[in-house]
Design a protein around this nucleic acid. Structure first.
Lengths: 229, 229
DNA sequence: ACATGATTGTCATAAATTTGACATATTTCT
DNA sequence: AGAAATATGTCAAATTTATGACAATCATGT
């Protein structure tokens, strides 16, 4: 009945970067295993059978692409999701990255929140029971797989930003988010958007969710931010 | 218990630019330290242990990137947030900027308001809320994550100032706070508010907590101040 | 490449809530 | 009782949030 915490293997040769990733990923409740080379990563992979692998593109020895091809070539490891990280920006690389079999692809610099969001998404796909295929709060339901939101089984149309916003809220019902935290999580870490913009989008989300009647599920916490419930 | 103002180290070789930054940053209530070279910045860093470092990319001697790598490579200074400023616009530079470990990145020309917003954001992130633990005193409970207060499981509605006030009290049950100490902690050190205003807010807090019956949990220490319990 | 419609961030303004001060009442201590 | 300190109701001012409008940007299909 008790499910183990998701195990994440992080292959990244820049140790500072690796530690940062491990820190953040563990804070999310995952178990993290670090590896500095492709070879080490491969050993750890065999040993721990992780739920997801984060691979840096460039690494000494077996690099990210090679390792990814190895993982995807072995039927024992084939269905472990791989998230590739790269500093390159060229579209061609992006294609090659996914060509190697990676399930997702992230370009440096990326925001930690974006990485975590993608990790969660991959986990949901691979282990539906962990993240739950459906996130619900009261009569609101968000289906991440179908990218669909309903309230009382009525379909709610949300724009991309509103959807991601609701996603954040519904993953932690009751938690109060500061505007800055929401910007980090929903908009991304290194972009500059006014704090007040959050108000506008929360307003739009409220409106969308209350369109067909129903009370406002959000709480405005004056001087702090917002929470769902 | 007195918190120092955030100290900002500004490494910028263009003196006019530096002065402008210092002026604006100090107007925000920060303490600013200027440095014209990488070497000087490093000395000041060691000396003052700033809360955040603003680095110009191009500087004589040790430049911004090098210094950033030094900062991020030393575990003593690693978690001081670094904001890199650069005149370059190429995407590749942006990548390299964050790659060097900078926590954020700003391209000239930038607006002062954007810079200040990013500084504030970095400071907020660096001081994460000591969340997770619920704070309790007798039947009073304060949940920092949900930003919710209950007494005997009855929800208590508090206004921002009352909430922060209770937060201070409940973190140190039994401690007697002088009005000045409460002003420092709850209102902030730089603003001027009458001592007597504390009385009013303690009164409001008392009223809110006793709304649904229950005895007054606070103690008025005549000639000194107040305490919880 | 281009047009077109949707989405998004910002701003101005309105609305709502909170706040600090003060006057007055009450309590406490000697 | 008298003096000093604290408690409390009231209210204008200040702060914070909600919302509609709009230009810029983005995405999509041709």
């Amino acid at each position: 009945m008790t499910e183990r915490d998701p195990v994440i293997l992080i292959a990244e040769d820049d140790l500072a970067q690796q530690k940062l990733l491990i820190y953040n990923v563990e804070r999310e409740g995952f178990v993290a295993i670090g590896a500095e080379t492709g070879e080490e990563a491969y050993q750890q992979l065999k040993l721990h059978d992780p739920d997801i692998v984060i691979l840096d593109w460039m690494m000494p020895g077996i690099n990210g692409i090679k390792l990814c091809k190895i993982i995807k070539g072995d039927r024992k490891t084939r269905n472990i999701p791989v998230l590739m990280i790269s500093a390159r920006t060229e579209e061609e690389d992006r294609v090659r990255g996914l060509d190697s079999g990676a399930d997702d692809y992230l370009i440096k610099p990326y925001s930690i929140s974006e990485l975590l969001a993608r990790v969660r998404a991959l986990l949901r796909r691979a282990r539906p029971t962990i993240a739950g295929t459906r996130l619900t709060y009261e009569d609101i339901e968000l289906d991440p797989v179908r990218h669909l939101v309903t309230r009382n089984d009525n379909r709610i149309e949300l724009r991309p930003t509103e959807y991601r916003l609701l996603e954040a809220f519904i993953e932690h019902p009751g938690r109060v988010w500061s505007r800055q935290q929401l910007l980090d999580r929903v908009w991304g870490r290194h972009i500059f958007v006014e704090d007040r913009t959050v108000d506008v989008h929360v307003g739009r989300l409220r409106k969308a969710l209350c369109e067909n009647g129903g009370s406002d599920p959000f709480r405005t916490v004056r001087g702090v931010g917002y929470s769902l419930g």
